[in-house]
Simulated scan of single mutants.
Amino acid sequence: MRYFILSQDGRISDAVEPMGVTQIITKERMKEEYRHELEELTLQFPIRETNKCEYIDFIERPVPLASDKLKSILTTYDPHLYVKWVIVADRKRTRQEKYWLFIPPCVECLSDRSEFHKNGTSKRLVIDERKVGSQPVFTIAGIRESYILVNLAVAESVLRRGMLGIRFTRVETEAR
């Protein structure tokens, strides 16, 4: 199986940018044992004011946010994927858009062939297909970066729908 890093397309310079997210959605709340705290919250965030805002289908940072179209695909392939609705508000233009915070499962799938820089960041990322199993959307345990990976079927499904602001980068795999 082929896997790809799902990321925000950096070429879209006027992509919508939610503000104040990390004050509410902390790293601890992103962990499975604290997700119940997220369920109790109503999540609405203002956006950074700019002349033009492009509402892309995937906002990578500070937390992964998916449009309705992207969320629909992700949950079709992984019905157990944790999702929570979030409102992104442009007060200047009185516009609100619904996005979905999603938290993929973390999988121990790093291959021994992976290489790292001295500061601990990935130099060469290699995942072991056998350890991934049938998981269509996931993050990788044991690395500093918080990459979201999807399998080929998910990537193709997203690409067929012409979504805005999404980029895929193929990841090296090993199957023993």
Rank of each mutant, 00 (worst) to 15 (best):
P136R: 02
F138C: 03
V150Y: 05
H117T: 13
G142C: 00
D78N: 14
V154N: 06
I140Q: 02
A89I: 11
G162T: 03
Q135V: 15
M163Y: 11
T139K: 14
R160T: 06
C106E: 15
Y82K: 05
K84Y: 07
W100G: 01
V107S: 02
S157A: 10
V107R: 00
P136E: 04
V83N: 08
T169G: 10
Y147W: 11
T173K: 00
D78F: 12
K118T: 13
Y147T: 04
I73N: 01
V86S: 01
R160I: 06
K123E: 15
L70D: 04
T169M: 12
K131W: 07
L70N: 00
N151F: 07
L152G: 03
N151Q: 08
N119W: 04
T173C: 11
T169P: 03
A141P: 02
S146G: 09
Q135S: 11
G142K: 03
I87T: 12
F168Q: 02
T169F: 13
E115H: 10
L70E: 07
P105M: 12
R170T: 12
T121S: 14
D112P: 10
R93W: 07
V150L: 08
A155H: 06
Y77R: 01
A153E: 15
V171R: 04
S122W: 09
L159A: 10
R144Q: 13
S111C: 05
A153W: 12
E172C: 03
V154I: 11
V107H: 08
K92D: 11
H117C: 10
R170N: 11
L101D: 08
G165C: 00
T139E: 14
R167P: 02
R113H: 15
T173S: 09
A155K: 11
R130D: 14
F138I: 02
I148W: 03
T75S: 06
G120M: 09
W100T: 01
K84W: 10
G120F: 10
Y82L: 05
H117N: 15
Y77P: 01
S134D: 14
T75N: 01
L81I: 11
V86L: 06
N119C: 02
F116T: 00
K118C: 10
K98M: 12
C109F: 08
R161N: 11
S122M: 12
Y77N: 07
S114A: 14
S122I: 15
I103W: 00
R130N: 14
V137T: 12
P105A: 13
R144E: 11
E97A: 09
R91G: 12
I166G: 01
G162K: 07
S146M: 04
E145W: 08
R161I: 07
C109P: 07
V83D: 04
V137W: 10
A141W: 08
S122V: 15
R93N: 14
I143K: 00
R93P: 06
P136F: 07
T139R: 15
R113M: 14
V107M: 05
P136D: 00
F168S: 00
Y99V: 04
I103M: 08
D128Y: 05
V86D: 01
T94I: 15
F116S: 02
P104Q: 01
K98F: 10
V154L: 09
L159Q: 09
V83H: 03
E108H: 10
Q96Y: 13
R161S: 08
L149W: 06
G133D: 03
V107F: 05
